[in-house]
């Protein structure tokens, strides 16, 4: 037990130090001017994708449920956070303070939707669960696309069309249907992003190494056995799903405050798949892996522009090859034979 604890501590420290090392490198590069504008623009999205990949890995890798609606939670977080920032743009002058409150609101809103969706969804299993999370993601996207919210002296108005808002003369439309939210204060910075990555890692890694995390993984490995030793399946599954959703909401708030405009159509099924690709390539269940995969796969195509036409094609091929290599029974047998031969060879030498 002590040995495993020590290993976990070393492992987690490596993960945290990687993030801090990355931050230091960026600081040095900024100071020496070695950072192009293109790279600078990538820094916040990098943090965002790391948060999303780590949070999705909690659902897919640790809890063992394939969620195809991660972008939906991101959407909820992004819109609720940006809505708050727009509403309070004058009341709270400090950008950072406003962003912090927006982050809390975004996380809470996404967590609320996580519970709301998780309760019915987690009763299902396997393929059905995947398709229903996809359905929920699409529903969120479609509803946001017809959502109009505005404010005036009478308070907040919600409607399904611009006319339906019935705003007074001085009213202001905040969420404008398919156009979404425009001109959110761009408060996201790299430093805030890195802090959020560290917080995300802290939450997820601590959860995995806790009693709760072991219960969640026990359910993943054998549901019936876990139930028979008295683990409350619904509670733990819902817990993992909700935490994952709320972290996706944090990623969404970061996203909303990084770009000038925010539209519901950005959070479609393709976004969910993109994050899933990070998780699969980084190794399902491997938190550090999804972190590295998110950074490499976000930065590489942006740096190699000419390569971007083939980017999605290569993603697809790598996704298939990766699954065949890691999960096909024959590939597993092949690797085991290889390992045995390698080990046997070592023994002979000794």
């Amino acid at each position: 037990m002590k040995e495993t604890k020590r290993k976990q501590l070393i492992n987690n420290s490596i993960t945290y130090s990687l993030v801090i090392a990355f931050w230091l490198v960026v600081q040095v590069l900024t100071a020496t001017g070695g950072l192009s504008n293109q790279l600078k623009g990538l820094l916040v999205p990098l943090c965002m994708y790391v948060i999303l990949a780590v949070s999705l890995n909690l659902t897919v890798g640790i809890s063992g449920e394939l969620s195809l609606g991660h972008a939906g939670f991101m959407c909820v977080g992004a819109f609720s956070g940006a809505f708050f920032s727009k509403l309070m743009a004058e009341s709270i002058a400090n950008d950072t303070l406003r962003l912090v409150i927006a982050l809390v609101i975004g996380a809470a809103a996404a967590a609320f939707f996580g519970i709301l969706i998780g309760i019915p969804v987690l009763r299902l299993r396997g393929d059905y669960l995947a398709i229903v999370t996809l359905a929920f993601g699409e529903i969120i996207k479609n509803v946001v696309n017809v959502l109009y919210v505005g404010t005036d002296a009478n308070g907040i108005h919600i409607a399904m069309s611009k006319k339906g808002l019935n705003l007074l003369e001085d009213g202001q439309v905040i969420i404008e249907g398919a156009k979404g939210i425009a001109k959110t204060p761009r408060a996201s910075t790299f430093n805030i992003g890195i802090i959020l990555v560290l917080i995300t890692l802290f939450i997820v890694l601590n959860l995995i190494n806790s009693r709760t995390g072991r219960a969640i993984m026990a359910i993943r490995d054998n549901r019936i056995a876990a139930e028979s030793v008295g683990i409350n399946i619904t509670k733990y599954k819902l817990m993992a799903f909700t935490i994952s959703a709320s972290l996706a909401g944090v990623g969404g708030v970061l996203y909303a405050h990084n770009y000038a405009s925010l539209a519901g159509k950005s959070f479609d099924y393709n976004m969910s798949i993109l994050i899933l690709v990070y998780v699969v390539l980084g190794g399902i269940g491997n938190i550090r892996g999804s972190m590295i995969a998110a950074v490499v796969l976000t930065a590489l195509p942006e740096l190699l522009r000419s390569f971007s036409t083939y980017r999605m094609l290569i993603y697809a091929i790598v996704l298939i090859a990766m699954m065949l290599f890691t999960s096909a029974p024959s590939a597993i047998a092949f690797r085991e034979r290889l390992m045995e031969r390698f080990k046997g060879h070592k023994k002979e030498v000794a």
Binding site: G64, L66, D127, V280, M323
Partner: peptide, 8 residues
């Protein structure tokens, strides 16, 4: 596992 097949 069905997860692997679905991702493929």
């Amino acid at each position: 596992s069905s997860l692997a097949v679905l991702i493929t």
